[in-house]
Structures are given as structure tokens and as C-alpha cells.
Simulated scan of single mutants.
Amino acid sequence: MRFLLASLLAIAIALGLGGWTAKLAIDGGTNFDAVELGPWTASPLAGTRAADPYAKARLAKLAQLTLGGGEGIVFHAEEDDQGRRLLLQCSYRLEGGTPAARFFTLSAHSDAGRVDLPQAGRPGWLTSNSLLRKEDNSFEIAVGPEPRSGNWLATNLTGPYRLTFALYDTPASAITGAAGLTMPSIQREGCRDDG
């Protein structure tokens, strides 16, 4: 009887510890193939058969569709250039250029994964075909709750979030990798709570 109880206890501990560490790896965002460009991170192999099992499990959990190996690449940013967490109540300026792509989208997502739609009538994303650019093809995008002239990605509510920058039909994919690319900088300009 003692052997049976010890065996059941060992199995329960093994299953509990194994499940907890697997959940930690999936929720923690462990990416073995991650490419980092400043505050931006991408997993070029996420939509391919070569993706690691944790990336596949994370995408299945979030119910996200991925881009295929030659279709494009998706970058995420959860911090600004100074390493501070992105907050919905703060205003940011994205500045620079985009890697070569036929089309791109920029959107803001809460930690739950939903698009944080702002005031009525304002979408929670920008697309490359509606972006105002400078003469040298660079751009500035204001991100935050306060209305701004020019390119403005509106957010609302409070708390942490992430920016998603999806490049479609681009050489920066799983096939060629993201080496040599530059992504826009993310600078915090202020927060509503700063007073």
C-alpha cells in the first residue's frame, strides 16, 4: 500500500511539475528562433514546419494564424527603446523606415491578444497604403490616447500592451531571415499619469 501511495505521489508531482514548466515556457514567450531588432522581436520560422514545439503551442493557444515561410514576417514590441514596458495610457513616437515589403500593418494589442479599439470611428491599426511619409520615405507615427495630426495609432484604456508590425510579401521572411533589417524606433513622449 505504501508503494502504491508513493508511486501515485511521484506521478502527481511529475505531472504537476511538467505541466507547470510547459505552461511557463508557452506563456513566457520562449522563442528559440527569435530575431531581435531593437525593441522588435520576430520568429521567422513561426509559420513553418521548422518552428519549435513551444512556438507552435503558443500560437495554438492564442488561436493566431501565422504567415507562411515566404509570405512575410511579424514583429512584436512590448518595450520602448529604453526598455520600459509599453503602456496604453502613454504616448509614443515611432520613427524611421520600414523594411522592404509590398504591404504592412501596425496594430496595438492588449496582453489578452485583442486589438484595443479606441474611440468610436478610429481603427486600432494603420496600414502602409494610408501612411503619410517624408520625402526620404521615412515616417513618424504617434501612438497613444491623445489625438495627433499626421499618422496616429489611437489606443485607449490603461495597462501594458504590445505593438504588432506585420510585413507581407517581403524578403525579410523565414526563407531569407531578418538580418540587415532596421525597424522603427519607439520613443516614449509622456503619460497621462505624469501630471
Score class of each variant (00 low, 15 high):
residue 20 W to H: 00
residue 167 L to T: 03
residue 194 D to G: 01
residue 75 F to Y: 15
residue 131 L to K: 01
residue 115 V to N: 05
residue 46 A to H: 07
residue 78 E to V: 10
residue 50 A to I: 10
residue 132 L to Y: 03
residue 87 L to Q: 15
residue 51 A to F: 00
residue 174 A to T: 10
residue 78 E to F: 14
residue 26 I to Y: 01
residue 112 A to G: 05
residue 160 P to H: 11
residue 111 D to A: 13
residue 127 T to D: 01
residue 108 A to G: 13
residue 84 R to H: 13
residue 39 P to H: 13
residue 70 G to R: 14
residue 64 Q to C: 02
residue 145 P to T: 15
residue 43 S to R: 01
residue 56 K to R: 07
residue 128 S to M: 13
residue 160 P to S: 14
residue 86 L to W: 06
residue 63 A to Q: 03
residue 26 I to N: 03
residue 138 S to L: 05
residue 122 R to S: 06
residue 182 T to Y: 06
residue 164 T to N: 06
residue 86 L to M: 09
residue 195 G to K: 06
residue 81 D to W: 12
residue 146 E to F: 04
residue 13 I to N: 04
residue 180 G to K: 11
residue 111 D to K: 13
residue 187 Q to L: 14
residue 52 D to K: 08
residue 24 L to R: 09
residue 136 D to H: 01
residue 34 A to K: 06
residue 146 E to N: 09
residue 94 L to W: 14
residue 30 T to N: 02
residue 170 T to Q: 02
residue 133 R to G: 02
residue 166 A to H: 02
residue 67 L to P: 09
residue 47 G to N: 07
residue 12 A to P: 12
residue 190 G to A: 07
residue 135 E to N: 04
residue 79 E to K: 07
residue 153 L to A: 06
residue 48 T to K: 10
residue 118 P to A: 15
residue 185 S to G: 15
residue 182 T to Q: 09
residue 63 A to N: 04
residue 88 L to F: 12
residue 13 I to P: 05
residue 162 R to I: 09
residue 7 S to G: 15
residue 121 G to T: 11
residue 45 L to G: 10
residue 135 E to M: 03
residue 162 R to C: 09
residue 165 F to K: 05
residue 112 A to S: 05
residue 86 L to N: 11
residue 158 T to D: 15
residue 137 N to K: 01
residue 79 E to I: 08
residue 168 Y to T: 01
residue 44 P to M: 07
residue 49 R to K: 14
residue 22 A to G: 02
residue 114 R to E: 12
residue 95 E to Y: 10
residue 62 L to K: 02
residue 110 S to D: 09
residue 50 A to F: 15
residue 27 D to F: 01
residue 62 L to W: 00
residue 16 G to N: 14
residue 194 D to T: 04
residue 15 L to P: 07
residue 88 L to W: 10
residue 74 V to S: 12
residue 13 I to D: 04
residue 18 G to D: 02
residue 159 G to H: 01
residue 172 A to L: 05
residue 163 L to S: 12
residue 9 L to N: 14
residue 174 A to V: 11
residue 192 R to G: 08
residue 185 S to Y: 11
residue 169 D to F: 09
residue 117 L to K: 06
residue 177 G to H: 09
residue 192 R to S: 07
residue 64 Q to L: 02
residue 26 I to D: 03
residue 113 G to K: 05
residue 78 E to K: 13
residue 139 F to H: 01
residue 68 G to I: 05
residue 20 W to Q: 01
residue 179 A to R: 08
residue 157 L to F: 14
residue 75 F to I: 10
residue 132 L to H: 03
residue 50 A to N: 14
residue 124 G to R: 12
residue 59 L to D: 03
residue 115 V to Q: 04
residue 29 G to Q: 13
residue 101 A to F: 07
residue 72 G to C: 09
residue 89 Q to N: 15
residue 157 L to M: 12
residue 64 Q to E: 03
residue 36 E to I: 10
residue 129 N to E: 03
residue 29 G to I: 12
residue 133 R to M: 02
residue 86 L to S: 12
residue 33 D to V: 03
residue 148 R to V: 02
residue 74 V to M: 11
residue 114 R to I: 08
residue 58 R to A: 03
residue 70 G to A: 15
residue 108 A to N: 14
residue 134 K to M: 02
residue 137 N to G: 06
residue 163 L to I: 13
residue 145 P to E: 15
residue 174 A to H: 14
residue 99 P to N: 09
residue 6 A to D: 00
residue 71 E to R: 08
residue 8 L to E: 05
residue 151 N to T: 08
residue 137 N to I: 08
residue 101 A to T: 00
residue 151 N to F: 07
residue 176 T to H: 15
residue 7 S to K: 00
residue 191 C to V: 13
